[in-house]
Nucleic acid binder design. Sequence first.
DNA 1: TCATGGATATATGCATACAATTATACTCGC
DNA 2: GCGAGTATAATTGTATGCATATATCCATGA
Lengths: 214, 214
Amino acid sequence: MMHKTISLADQIFERLESDILTGVYPIGSVLTELSLSEDLGVSRTPIREAVRRLEQEHLVEPSSKGVVVLSITPHDAMIIYDIRIQVEGLAARACAENITDEQLAEMKELLELQEFYIKKADSEKIKNTDSQFHQMIYQFAGSPVYYDTLAPLHNKTQKFRKASVARSGKAVNSHQEHHDIYRAIAARDPDAAELAMKRHVEEAKKRLAELAEI
Amino acid sequence: MMHKTISLADQIFERLESDILTGVYPIGSVLTELSLSEDLGVSRTPIREAVRRLEQEHLVEPSSKGVVVLSITPHDAMIIYDIRIQVEGLAARACAENITDEQLAEMKELLELQEFYIKKADSEKIKNTDSQFHQMIYQFAGSPVYYDTLAPLHNKTQKFRKASVARSGKAVNSHQEHHDIYRAIAARDPDAAELAMKRHVEEAKKRLAELAEI
DNA sequence: TCATGGATATATGCATACAATTATACTCGC
DNA sequence: GCGAGTATAATTGTATGCATATATCCATGA
């Protein structure tokens, strides 16, 4: 009997990550292992493990007392986008070269789901599917190096992106760009995939820059 | 009194990381928390923490029993270089825009030191200064994003690079390229800096590819 | 002989207890 | 009233114990 049991540490990490990115724990707030373990009703052990992972992803930073929730400056966000433009371009290219039919089908399904949420103007779900699309690219690119490099960068821009996608018109643009990327990958055209991805991340950067009035 | 006390978990992580990268624990070998705690004479708690970090860096992989030591495939190494070509290019550009005079002086000093070691053919020191030069670029680029992204990638290619630099002739090439980068940064010429860095990492990739007979 | 099932050993996941460090608050002396 | 020094509290680091899941080995039966 293959009972898939997810460890408490993993669950807590995901919850804390999400709560930080969505602002439940505001920037600058302090988290201690003890208070978290009381809040979440578990011992410090799995909390510690989760917090260590948050540290590695630079979502929190050790301080004299506990860890403090970090933010990124608009400047950092712009740099992250510059890096993503280049590296996600490479990842999309690798995807076009390596993706399997099953993975392609999965990707298509996700795009259809996103279309559905766009029609319903459910910005929270739109944001989620958006993230999932990019993470699929990272995972289907054929080397864990892509995911390891890009996932933390992507995470760090989440809260900026949230505001960006909330404007429904922009979400449609983004979805169209995703579809362009998908088509290039489905056609196994690395050049087109890289170009489409680079354009997409560049547009995302522009949308953010406008919004943040940088 | 500022007594810097390094946690056991940190020490163990560094030791295990080094031992894996240098082959003390060969690829495919299995490590269990219990055996490690007995070997190193500490409890499982700091071992666990270190092993989790190794997992995140993909140096080991969970298996049915303990974790298995992974290797970086030559394919992954090539991908890492492709990413570094792009991102270190951006970092060098940012460096040229942001570096202070003091930092510049520090960089120059390091290059002179490297020249000294090259004359002495001390390949270990050459390797060290080489790493330091790149890490300086990451640090002087004006945003922690560069360091966070590039340092892990740089680390992962260390053992390949070691073999590469051991060939003294190549080390001289590499040093010349470093000097080109330095000159462009010193001249505050972002375009030249980016170009020089990209060329340098490309050459490093080629040197490795030849050596690894990929 | 080989498959099957259960006992045993081994591993991890989590909780808890303790030690040690660091921050905080308080008191005493000036 | 204010600063220094000390006591106290809070927090992390580490060890240990227990529960649970999994693998291994052995015995038993067809």
